[in-house]
Nucleic acid binder design. Sequence first.
DNA 1: CACCATTATGACACCGGTGTCATTGCCAAA
DNA 2: TTTGGCAATGACACCGGTGTCATAATGGTG
Lengths: 338, 338
Amino acid sequence: MKKVTINSVASHAGVSKKTVSRVLNNEPNVSAATREKVLAVFKELDYTPNPIARGLAQNRSFIIGCLYDNPSKSYITRVQTGALEACQENHYNLLIHPCEFRGEELINNVEQLLQTSRLDGIVLTPPFGDFAELVNLLKSKNIPYARVASAVLQDDSISVRSNDEQGAFEITEHLIRLGHKSIAFIKGHPDHSATQQRFKGYRRSLASHGIEFDERLVEEGNFSYHSGVDSARSILDLSPRPTAVFASNDYMAAAVLKLATQRRLAVPDDISIAGFDNAPIARHIWPGLTTIAQPVEEMTKQAVTQLISHISNPQEQPYQVTLESRLITRESTAQVKS
Amino acid sequence: MKKVTINSVASHAGVSKKTVSRVLNNEPNVSAATREKVLAVFKELDYTPNPIARGLAQNRSFIIGCLYDNPSKSYITRVQTGALEACQENHYNLLIHPCEFRGEELINNVEQLLQTSRLDGIVLTPPFGDFAELVNLLKSKNIPYARVASAVLQDDSISVRSNDEQGAFEITEHLIRLGHKSIAFIKGHPDHSATQQRFKGYRRSLASHGIEFDERLVEEGNFSYHSGVDSARSILDLSPRPTAVFASNDYMAAAVLKLATQRRLAVPDDISIAGFDNAPIARHIWPGLTTIAQPVEEMTKQAVTQLISHISNPQEQPYQVTLESRLITRESTAQVKS
DNA sequence: CACCATTATGACACCGGTGTCATTGCCAAA
DNA sequence: TTTGGCAATGACACCGGTGTCATAATGGTG
């Protein structure tokens, strides 16, 4: 049960450790015969290179950090799932770092993280991809990073997003097609760029149908269920009551649904409700929520894959991607009652 | 912007690198004056030891792995939160490893993980803490591990759990106190030891009130929402219909609630529903679910803390802990209609 | 066959820490 | 004064890889 190192492989194969290293890394200038021999010894001894030693020599950790601060647990696990897939395919590990700080504290916290963990790169998930201070810190420290679901920047950073504006537009269109003209809107957390995007999509749809925008129908939420309850209260108290509510995510939409039901309003007969994200809760409640599905796992996976390939090949040009989202209609929206 | 290493600190302070290392690790046999001087240089140069180099020298990675396979996203994030807290306090990192394999494949997958990641220890979250094969693998490879929310074993492994049997007993008692005598039960995933525990608690409560156990009232679920839908269908089709349903977790309970509502049954007036875990969904739906709250974060945190201290001090005797759970009554359970 | 270019290989230092052991300095006891 | 014991310190090897450079082997060309 002795430890198998590059040295034992080298002496077993009768070559120098450097040659073994060459085989390990698929470097050129190794004869086919030697390569075969070394590969055979790998199998025989069941050798796996020690990532720590490798990391020390190359000043790398083979670890990607994932920064997040999101009230939605399901969103977090989806992000993690995508990031993990990319990491595993590339023999990287994923370090998760929830972080609720803002401003100076955030910067200190991340600096600390970088110092103690020697991450090779960082994935910034919403809202961190939109924090200029943070992005500048990473730039100045020369830490590769990728931004997920954040606003487009005119630079050469890695960024994968989906079209929130378009998604919000489509779901509002859906409501308008059902005859709704008085559609309340609950905004998300102001730190998230998606919040502005979704709001814009909502307004664009209204405008394209000549429906006048009414500020009284708009509530400020923050993506949490709790904020949805507060917003729902204000909206349901309005008179006349809007015939539909579009909440910027499913948790807030679920809160509207719960409050409406508590008040003995029938959904969707008395009021239609739409959400955003297609979180599990959207189909776990009755009626199921009409919502917009986004490829969160896929976005994150692509971002991390690109990040890792950028780490290995820094000269390679990064590119920015926008993926499509999709309208999912369930029972929570219906034709407005005439 | 040069890199600060132990060597630069040593030359700055005019001592050997070994002495710096002694100060770093709080080793004895350093004079107070020297210690002061070195600590001052730490501050001056803003030095942080390189964990990778340290890891190589000590054959450690300072990484704890967290193995999970759970349909409940909220459970996963709670586990992660607790594990992360413990890791951060001890300057460890957390590697997450979702893993849906069973049997041989599971073993191979974990062996692979161990070889490539050089984890210092592993947290086994449900159901993995109950997989004897896996536990034996870790034992034989001498990898420290901690089991969370798994069955009690008569050995010296680290284990933190809560009393599922008692929790299930209490919630059943609650239903019986409300006058229910026909209480359906939905079991969890057979791989999880909690499944048996919760079932036992249910039966103990029935027995203590002289209510005869009726097998037709028991459905096999697997903790997923989807399995809850199937079980709910069978239960609601029973005639006479039970007056209450106790599902082994909140997702399945939510499924019962959704189906009941779809069928125009009033909850809790026509049928009471209880869950387990106090997942977010329990309070996000209407009516809110009566359930049992478990200290998942705290369990995991204690397990990881003990694991890390065991890694540093292997001779220290591990201990097993059982934490208390708590009944939370919400609107989904009520007095049975006479 | 001599010469040079190219490929294949190995010796050795290095990454940034820790472990082992020898050495120095100091003080108390003999 | 000598001796022994212990605290304080440093020299040096080592962890398991990779990078640099020198050297050996090979092959193509005139």
